[in-house]
Design a protein around this nucleic acid. Structure first.
Lengths: 334, 334
DNA sequence: CTGAAAGCGCTTACAG
DNA sequence: CTGAAAGCGCTTACAG
């Protein structure tokens, strides 16, 4: 099955390849109506479709971007990718997706392959492990934007939730309902994973601002696999908390697993609030109060920023951090 | 920032481009140790990385595939894509994702662009609307495999759940617990959307096999947006069902929304079982009995099939349908 | 208004 | 064991 090329079209239409190329690129300024019609006819007759790989080689643009997330299975990533894909589709761009699984080596491999494939830009949730590599990209003025995680020592625009604000909203929602023994549960802390760090900080600041003494044992960092036990210890403290903030959706699930197993009533035995909205929040009993992040807008913003960089080609003078507002969705769990 | 090319490496190493290319392609058969070392050194010194677009043009392979799903936001799609991406990563392939949103025009645009970009193959959940286009691809022997939906009139291997079996499992789980007034709720029916069709058929067959008379009004096809009302009518039938099968996860959510709003107890007032497992099944009260599909294995299978086709290049003699086994996960809702 | 020629950055027979 | 040349399928000044 021989592919039909621009040469075939040119021959069929009785013109040169150059003229066909002009036609394809809408450069009709000086083209005779008849030439145009003949080319049109030839393209239809041969069912010609241009080879974009050849075009990309010449034009130095693949109209493709890469998106590197931690794991596409996480709801937040999925929503972000959907938003990015929508923006790309409007621009007739395509997106290659990559799961770094929080492994810097995997991230590195993806970045190198994406570059070798000449993608026009990259949106990444960085693992934190490839400072030199990213630094090199910014020096080459390669279009790139980060999401969800701040990476220190690299000058790259980043789209983030206002994570401290999210914790403030959670703490204040709890206080308003009269809960002041507030615990916060999180996966293990990692300075590279910005949301956890900032949400814990926000929690501390919110307590301080409301003059609630910080009880260190109310901060529970724990592997997800050991979280049932960690929660158990928390609940059996001499002065147990009467409210729990889950730092993200996966922690929330652990908390709900625990309360179900131990037949604890929410919010009577313990109030619960989660950062990250979850799809079952409404149908749960009690309906779950959460702090939602505008994942779609964030993905859209990242994509738009990337397109600006791709278009402009000039080095942006200074890197920016774009913070998005979390939103409290008050339901019944606190 | 000039890109470094194979010519630069050749010059730096004092050899020809051909030799560098041999090196890059691991054709060391006759290469002198010294030549090799010099090239190696030059590559490192110049931080050279081959331009895969140029290679693709010559080799007619982009080591990239396209995946077209209905909507990446659906949990099933996300899992399938994750599995596909993992297989691709092992093969050093990349995946471009596309959301067709059940719109044939969108699907068409994606297929044409993917082909123009010379992807090596496509995995798609077809909308049903582009028979001619797909037919054309199979005639050109282009590697392609379908998932989740059967498309009649096109000879393409398809990976599917054994949907009828899923309904059998659901019906039988219900019967075993003594529920025989079984309703089935589904979004509007569409012959192109195989799972719904087959699950309804399976439901009918299962009832028949167990000699339960079919009550037509127990089959409720309804837009998601009108589903609350449809469920309400069902529940207020003179002889209402005592059990409901939700044909998929989105319907399940509608059912649970209804039961919560109307304070119906599950399974006492109505038993519930869902096809598609949901992430909150375990933590729900009562825990939800579901019929799960092996989404990851299905995605993996689709990817492996596609790679076989990409490798073999010879037309497969006859198209196959690969059915995967659903699994009943018995919990507390029936 | 249109065409010949060079070039994008690789690979691949083929010659020596 | 290595290099010169042609070619993959386009685009783009430039000439006429």
């Amino acid at each position: 099955m021989k592919k039909v090329t621009i040469a075939d079209v040119a021959q069929h239409a009785g013109v040169s390849k150059s003229t066909v190329s002009q036609y394809l690129n809408q450069r009709f300024d000086y083209m005779g109506e008849q030439t145009k019609a003949r080319i049109e006819e030839a393209i239809a007759a041969l069912e010609y479709s241009p080879n974009i790989v050849a075009r990309s080689l010449k034009q130095k643009s693949t109209t493709t971007i890469g998106v590197i997330v931690a794991n596409i299975l996480h709801v937040f990533s999925t929503q972000v990718i959907r938003a990015i894909e929508d923006v790309c589709n409007e621009h007739n761009f395509h997106v290659i997706i990559c799961n770094a699984d929080d492994q810097p080596e995997k991230e590195k491999k993806y970045i190198e392959m994406l570059r070798a494939k000449q993608v026009d830009g990259i949106i990444a949730v960085p693992t934190g492990g490839n400072v030199a590599l990213y630094q090199d990209l910014v020096e080459k003025n390669f279009p790139i934007v980060f999401m969800d995680r701040l990476m220190h020592g690299v000058e790259i625009d980043t789209v983030l939730l206002d994570n401290e604000k999210a914790s403030f909203l959670a703490v204040e929602a709890l206080l308003k309902q009269g809960y002041s023994q507030i615990a916060m549960i999180s996966p293990f802390l990692d300075p590279n994973i910005t949301p956890r760090e900032e949400r814990i900080n926000g929690y501390k600041k919110a307590l301080e601002q409301h003059q609630i003494p910080l009880e260190e044992r109310y901060i529970v960092p724990s592997e997800i696999s050991e979280m049932q036990e960690s929660i158990d210890q928390l609940i059996h403290l001499p002065n147990p908390p009467n409210a729990i903030i889950a730092v993200n959706d996966r922690v929330l699930k652990q908390v709900l697993t625990y309360t179900k197993k131990h037949k604890m009533r929410i919010p009577d035995d313990v109030a619960v609030i989660g950062i990250d909205d979850v799809p079952y929040a409404d149908i749960f009993s009690p309906a779950l109060t959460t702090v939602a992040q505008p994942a779609f807008e964030m993905g859209e913003k990242a994509a738009n920023l990337l397109f600006e960089k791709i278009k402009s080609k000039e080095r942006s003078n200074q890197t920016q951090i774009y913070r998005f507002e979390p939103e409290l969705i008050a339901r019944e769990s606190c």
